[in-house]
């Protein structure tokens, strides 16, 4: 799958591969030089493209079909992982996954929304849109982590909490609200990383952390650009303008002080080098946990509350 701005690069890369093949056969010095300068040009184009992405292009990257999802990251950064299921009340919501994993020798509770890669999986994962039982499962696992003194790491990647009849019947609003309140009081360190889409309350429902980080090509806002467009312009066609207006990228959110940091992606986006991306995420988690573990739990809770309490711009 290629996005329009990935296309020119992919075309050149295909040509480069051809030239390299030819080089293998011919062993020609001129050709070798040509290949090298061609490689430099591609790198330059890549840098130019990815340094000047529009907000909408970053939204597109955040939804890229090849982008690693929560379980991809969990399995690649842990040496062992035991998935845990169910909210102990209704059922197991497969749009929200979680479990205990070992990273750098320590046990961590991982939680996150999970998307599917093909039609069947997407259905099974409900496109990463959790129902109330998903949020309650997440809370159950967080409380378990607290009980055993293990830190919590959440991976956020959702187009929103599921808007459905059963979701309303089982209290979608209440489930998210409760998570917000309870996450503030967790005595263990909490790190939240937006790895794809961070849509509104559905994202925030597992997003109260001592550190809230965004991967470089993700978005986090109160509404998706499409929904914003449909409300403001009564049509989905103005999603680019909506994305601009919402200022929803990692850079915007950091600039506003609404997140704590940006996790750089490999040039070309997380999907072009999942191994490198996982390594960066792993190192980030390890270093942040080291910092957070040194803080007294009650102080950590105070700082968490203080941080979110200071968010807001108004005049008196």
């Amino acid at each position: 799958m290629l996005l329009d701005f990935e296309k020119p690069i992919a075309d050149l890369e295909a040509k480069l591969a051809e030239m390299k093949q030819q080089l293998d056969v011919e062993r020609n010095e001129d050709l070798r030089l040509a290949v090298r300068s061609f490689e430099d040009n591609i790198l330059k184009l890549k840098r130019e493209t990815f340094q000047n992405l529009t907000r909408w292009q970053r939204v597109q990257l955040s939804r890229h079909g090849d982008r690693p999802y929560t379980l991809d990251y969990i399995y690649s950064i842990t040496t062992q992982f035991i998935e845990l299921h169910g909210d102990r009340s209704v059922r197991d919501d497969q749009a929200m996954v979680g479990g205990l994993g070992t990273i750098d020798g320590q046990s961590v509770m991982f939680i996150g929304q999970q998307k599917g890669r093909n039609t069947k999986q997407r259905q099974q994962r409900n496109f990463g849109m959790a129902n109330p039982e998903g949020y309650r499962k997440a809370l159950r696992l967080m409380k378990m982590a607290e009980k055993f003194g293990k830190p919590v790491v959440t991976f956020i990647d959702t187009p929103g909490a599921f808007p459905g009849i059963e979701a309303e019947e089982r209290g979608q609003g209440e489930a998210i609200a409760r998570n917000l309140r309870e996450m503030f009081m967790l005595k263990v360190p909490v790190i939240c990383i937006i790895i794809g889409e961070g849509a509104s309350g559905g994202a925030l429902g597992i997003g109260i952390g001592d550190r809230v980080l965004m991967l470089e090509n993700t978005w986090y806002s109160v509404i998706s650009p499409e929904s914003c467009s449909s409300i403001l312009w009564r049509s989905w066609d103005y999603k680019e303008q909506a994305a601009e207006a919402l200022k929803l990228t990692a850079h915007d959110m950091l600039h506003f002080g609404l997140i704590d940091g940006i996790v750089e992606e490999p040039l070309g986006g997380a999907h072009t080098d999942p191994v490198a991306m996982s390594r960066i995420i792993k190192n980030t988690i390890i270093s942040q946990l080291t910092e957070l573990s040194a803080i007294d739990p009650l102080v950590r809770i105070d700082q968490r509350i203080e941080k979110f309490s200071s968010m807001g711009i108004f005049q008196e």
């Binding site: 309350g201 925030l204 997003g207 509350i305």
Partner: peptide, 20 residues
């Protein structure tokens, strides 16, 4: 309030923090 995008989202967190 859509016009405050990320800021309005975080008011959900802020109010919940104080209610905790």
């Amino acid at each position: 309030r859509m016009m405050e995008a990320g800021f309005s989202l975080m008011q959900m967190a802020k109010t919940s923090a104080r209610l905790a």
